[in-house]
Amino acid sequence: MNIFRLCGDLSHLLAILLLLFKIWKTRSCAGISGKTQLLFTIVYTARYLDLFTSFVSVYNSVMKIVFLTASYGTLYLMFYKFKPTYDHNHDSFRILYLIVPALVLSFIIVHVYTVMEILWTFSIYLEAVAIMPQLFMVSRTGEAETITSHYLFALGSYRALYILNWIYRYYTEDFLDWITIMAGIVQTILYCDFFYLYITKVLKGKRLSLP
């Protein structure tokens, strides 16, 4: 554990809680992509199956359980409790275009050929692109509520902080895992446009709207 990793995890946690808070407080999931939320739930489910097979630390297990619970909770709020507020017309990204390539790639580039390892690798690849339906939705509607922008910023920062963590771990522990590093870089690059808009608009008190 290092400071970049801890900040990354806290940023990730903040993002997930912010989203739940936004939906609960406004009693609405307008502007949130259900497809991105579904993809994240698939990601956590595929990755955290190791809760049953290996124990790393209390911190690690608690975070995994929180991420899993929160993501299923978000799906419940979006597709059941506040379903009428879900803006599915604008959530039209085809997620099979993300799931299938991620699955194929996880059979091609993987450390070890075991079911758990392939599922873990699949989750890493899928996570890298899981935000695309949400970004597509923002680009289609041309705007995002401020709290949604904060959510996206925290979610994007998390993997960017992990990149710093991997650099740090490479120098201090000789830790190097190219699968997570390359996927993490792709994931962070996808947010770059959004980061720019967030810094130039949202932080100056303006609403995020596209030209």
């Binding site: 990730h12 290996s54 790393v56 690690n60 995994k64 991420f67 873990w120 830790f175 895992d177 997570t180």
Partner: peptide
Amino acid sequence: TLVYPDKDEL
């Protein structure tokens, strides 16, 4: 060095 199966990251 590769650290499989030590997956301590989230």
